[in-house]
């Protein structure tokens, strides 16, 4: 017969959830504004962008969906802003079906036109691309044969930035920036662009996917942003504060509650009368 669980390891889950929600609401109302320590991975990511020259082209896979927008959008926004500060050009595509529809939200925070960025000349959006890894290979080999119109359906033939990417495209791209929640997408880009053509690469996977990319860092992948925390670090390090910095307090509080309950559960396990399951 199983011994009765101690109260500490049997706290009602509803109460636990309420505490998490309450803690996050509290920190949203009364932010701590703690300093954000910047990891080497984030510094390396920043340096990779910083070392590019004015006019260099960044190929961005804005491959996130609505589910991970809280982590990925700040990463997209801050790298875009950093690129604008450096005078870099950006070509945006998406390996996520939802990605193109989420771009408006990010652009409203970036406002490329505020720094004189002109669509078609300084940045470009070609929308969703299906096909997985062979599609990445085709894009880096010959961008013009893969895309003939942009996301709005406008022909790319009249856009100077698209003309810069005619084959061999891999010689024109200075950096690939991949944002995705899928390990296959991240590794696929590494194989088809970084390994094959030595194109520098930075990535922003979700926190849980970082171990998948770590084996490639820093040889094939020069920088990794550790999900939303990585974006917060990048914002802090680059001096371009945004949404992620504000979220870091919530991450702290959520993680703190989880940790406290983890400890309570184990204390309850240890002080439970012996002989129990």
């Amino acid at each position: 017969m199983a011994t009765k669980k101690h109260f500490l390891e049997n706290i009602p889950i509803g109460l636990y959830f309420l505490i998490i929600i309450g803690a996050m609401c509290y920190i949203q109302l009364y932010p701590l504004g703690l300093p954000i320590p910047v990891t080497e991975m984030t510094k390396a990511t920043y340096r990779t962008v910083e070392n590019l020259n004015e006019g260099d082209i960044i190929l961005v896979d804005q491959g996130y969906g609505a589910g991970t927008i809280a982590s990925h959008e700040p990463g997209f926004v801050v790298v875009f802003k950093h690129a604008m500060r450096k005078g870099l050009k950006l070509v945006i595509l998406s390996t996520s079906v939802e990605g193109p529809l989420l771009l408006d939200s990010a652009l409203a925070k970036i406002r490329p036109e505020s720094r004189g960025y002109e669509y078609g000349r300084d940045w470009l959006h070609v929308g969703y691309v299906a096909g997985g890894e062979p599609a990445y290979a085709a894009i880096v080999q010959d961008f013009a044969s893969t895309f003939t119109v942009d996301y709005e359906g406008t022909s790319l033939s009249g856009m100077p930035l698209a003309q810069e990417l005619i084959a061999p495209t891999y010689e024109k791209i200075a950096l690939v920036y991949v944002q995705s929640a899928g390990g296959d997408v991240c590794e696929g880009w590494i194989r088809q662009s970084a390994v094959r053509y030595d194109i520098p690469m930075i990535q922003q996977p979700l926190e849980m996917m970082v171990p998948t990319i770590l084996p490639y860092f820093p040889v094939n992948c020069q920088g990794i942003l550790n999900g939303g925390i990585g974006a917060a670090e990048y914002e802090s390090f680059s001096g371009l504060p945004g949404e992620a910095v504000k979220l870091s307090d919530m991450l702290s509080m959520g993680g703190l509650v989880v940790l406290i309950f983890l400890i309570l559960g184990n204390i309850g396990w240890f002080i439970r009368p012996k002989g129990g399951d």
């Binding site: 390891e9 589910g67 991970t68 959520g254 989880v258 983890l262 559960g265």
Partner: peptide, 30 residues
């Protein structure tokens, strides 16, 4: 998209926090 997909998708993903937190509390024992 913004009214349905984005809201529901973000909610579904955020809900996993509670599953993870619950699993961490109930399962991880020394």
């Amino acid at each position: 998209f913004n009214t349905f997909n984005q809201s529901l998708s973000a909610t579904a993903y955020a809900a996993t926090l509670f599953y993870l937190a619950s699993a961490t509390y109930r399962v991880l024992r020394i």
